[in-house]
């Protein structure tokens, strides 16, 4: 079970997730501190470890729109958050799969802060309200990458295979 710790509307941009002024910080090990930096209270709770790993952010359409900055995915991954949104912007969704950030597409979800969710492969169950909502599968182009444990591992495997053939 996972608790909803934040609910957001449509069009949450990567500027909101990881403001541009922190972009000189690039390493996945260093980006988590600036997660939603302008939502000061939420950021403080994250950095103060008051939010459990596996907690859920619920959002509307087009989550992660805007800049391609990968820090937006690595900062959320650093706190092991799970994003359940009605829909995701393309580059953000790809970055998430590449870095192993869990994203769930659930167009009809009704949930509010504090609700407890059960996430399975096919649906989201809101334990608090008792309602169930179907999940839309991730684009199939990303599944191999996710199955390999992220793009670094996937690309490494491909590289080694190629070197062996050469």
């Amino acid at each position: 079970m996972a608790k909803v710790v934040l609910t957001l509307g449509d069009d949450v941009s990567t500027d909101a997730i990881y403001p541009g002024r922190f972009m000189a910080t690039v390493l996945p090990s260093e980006t988590p501190q600036f997660c939603f930096a302008d939502l000061t209270e939420f950021n403080r709770a994250l950095n103060g470890k008051q939010i459990a790993k596996g907690s859920v952010i619920v959002a509307g359409n087009n989550f992660g729109c805007g800049s391609s900055r990968e820090q937006a995915a690595s900062t959320l991954k650093g706190h092991e958050l799970v994003i359940v949104a009605k829909a995701f912007a393309r580059i953000f969704l790809q970055n998430s799969a590449n870095l192993g950030l869990r994203t769930v597409i659930c167009p009809t979800l009704e949930a509010k802060e504090g609700d407890e969710l059960e996430l399975s492969a096919a649906e989201v169950q809101n334990k608090t309200s008792g309602k169930r909502f179907p999940i839309v599968p991730l684009p199939k182009a990303r599944q191999d990458v996710i199955d390999a444990g992220g793009l670094i591992a996937y690309a490494r495997k491909r590289l080694v295979e190629r070197a062996r053939r050469a």
Partner: peptide
């Protein structure tokens, strides 16, 4: 546009993996 890790794979392999 692609992310940085995806670009790292392009630098290594010369192709974009898995484009729908």
């Amino acid at each position: 546009g692609i992310g940085a890790t995806e670009m790292a794979a392009v630098w290594a392999l010369g192709s974009v993996l898995n484009v729908e």
